[in-house]
């Protein structure tokens, strides 16, 4: 099962490598990982998308909590939450493809943010699976480059992760 794990940790040098190191040392997989400071600059918020059986996810949460720099850990996917990921994708846009790509971008509510005679750069946000779907729907050989931020997530309503 896919899980989105949110972590609040001390914004200290090395804190990120402790988390990443834990995953590799114990053989847990990381699909995506994002990290940035929060409004309180002494804190970082880290989101990891991982997958595993219930037992594995339980161990991941416990092992994360054990890290000294980690303040709180939440499995967002346990309850209502929102997930978003940003993708920048550069595609070849010539001839009839130019129109087609634009139409697709519109359907997915993407924005074209860079235009040349030969290429578009499209900005797209959404859940990981929406970004996947967009990539699927564009002809593979038109795609020149993709860059994705990895998933960020937040609980709905009064589910708040704070110190």
């Amino acid at each position: 099962m896919r899980h989105i794990i949110s972590i609040l940790l001390e914004n200290e040098a090395g804190a990120l490598s402790r988390v990443a190191g834990l995953f590799s040392a114990r053989g847990y997989n990381i699909e995506t990982l994002t990290v940035a400071p929060t409004e309180d600059l002494s804190l970082s918020r880290l989101t990891i998308v991982t997958s595993g059986s219930d037992e594995v996810i339980e161990q991941i949460t416990k092992q994360l909590n054990k890290l000294i720099d980690v303040i709180k850990v939440v499995d967002l996917s346990e309850a209502a939450h929102i997930e978003r990921e940003l993708m920048l994708i550069k595609v070849r846009a010539t001839g009839k493809d130019r129109e087609e790509v634009k139409r697709l971008a519109d359907i997915f509510r993407g924005r074209i943010i860079d235009v040349t005679e030969l290429t578009y750069v499209i900005e797209l946000t959404g859940s990981g699976s929406k970004l996947d779907a967009f990539i699927q729907s564009i002809e593979a050989d038109l795609i020149l480059e993709t860059v994705r931020t990895g998933v960020s997530g937040i609980g709905r309503g009064d589910r708040i992760l704070k110190v």
Partner: peptide
């Protein structure tokens, strides 16, 4: 040192 010992300490500091 902090990198080398990270997986085998409870915690480390530089």
């Amino acid at each position: 040192t902090v990198g080398i010992t990270r997986p085998c300490v409870k915690h480390n500091f530089l």
